[in-house]
Design a binder for these strands. Structure first.
Lengths: 170, 170
DNA sequence: GTTAGCATGTAACAAGTTACATGATTAG
DNA sequence: CTAATCATGTAACTTGTTACATGCTAAC
């Protein structure tokens, strides 16, 4: 149930509406925890119901601005310090690798080539993102930068692995 | 809907019962595409219903052995060659990184330390697994080895990243 | 005979996706 | 005035998890 905690986390930075949060999920959080509009609004209603967040302002077009409550902050800290992440690795990319044997070798190598390309593009996209942001010294910046670095290293690793793997298939 | 394709893929190696497949999911496929007993049996029934697999034998204790049909093999190849994997990266581990700013620096570093430990353990577990298997030249071995190499590189990358990240938090 | 492991099935629930539905406000 | 964007909500469906339920067979 991490969507809940993603929302609490974002609201710990500043109050925001469902729509604001949706935009954040579409941009900075998209690579880490994608969420849909319907999911976000539903979860916000639940969070408000259980008192972890509260409506602090109402604007035009029915806009509701939510803010974290003390209970919400406690829950966020609890999640960060007391619960262990589970490496739930479900990987579409890797699952296919197991079954490349049903293809002809050149088809299998095509698949790995597409992974190389995908990794390269992912790398470059993140590079551009890193360059386009002017990083401050605030929490969001420091930790956003760290997450981005992960993405860069991940894509570089995957690219090198796929190149190595293509050589293994004779 | 990759569970479907995972099952088709495993059945492309050899016919198997739900129970056999469950064991495979618990061991070799656990790191890549975990699946529960209930999911597997439900999906096998559906696959048999749509003609992608078929019951080839019945054994003691109601055991049903399934095999891939021609349609099933076609579907498997189609999945491998015509559909692109989506890097659906939903990562519990990384999501937390975004919000480490709500913790005290030493708590944040504790979290990164636990990631270092987790990565190290993951690496060693895979090393042991690699050593315990006697790799043949068959498809399963070649591609299983490639997937395992991914796991090794991934854990090494994550460990180095977490070490670097811990230094960034002052 | 009794325990471990083989073997399947289903129900209830939680989480995530897609699509539908509605309407207000602002900028050009 | 009209199109883009802001803004929320809900229904139907799919996928995944947890728990319950049942019974057979082989080995000791």
């Amino acid at each position: 149930m991490s969507l809940r905690h993603a929302l609490l986390g974002l609201l710990s930075e500043r109050p925001a509406s469902g729509y604001d949060l949706l935009k954040t999920f579409e941009t900075s959080l998209a690579n880490v925890w994608p969420a849909t509009q319907s999911q976000i609004y539903t979860e916000l209603t639940k969070l408000a119901g259980s008192g972890l967040i509260t409506v602090t302002a109402e604007g035009p077009r029915g806009r509701k601005e939510y803010a974290l409550t003390d209970d919400g902050m406690t829950e966020l800290r609890h999640w960060l310090t007391e619960t262990r992440p589970q490496r739930n690795t479900r990987s579409d990319v890797l699952l296919r690798v197991f079954f490349l044997g049903v293809l002809r070798p050149e088809q299998a190598r095509d698949y790995l080539s597409s992974l190389i390309e995908m990794s390269q593009e992912g790398y470059e996209q993140l590079r551009r993102l890193a360059d386009s942001i002017d990083w401050d010294d605030d929490n969001l910046s420091v930790h956003g930068r760290i997450a981005l670095e992960y993405g860069l290293r991940f894509n570089a690793m995957r690219r090198e692995w796929a190149e190595w793997a293509a050589e293994q298939i004779k």
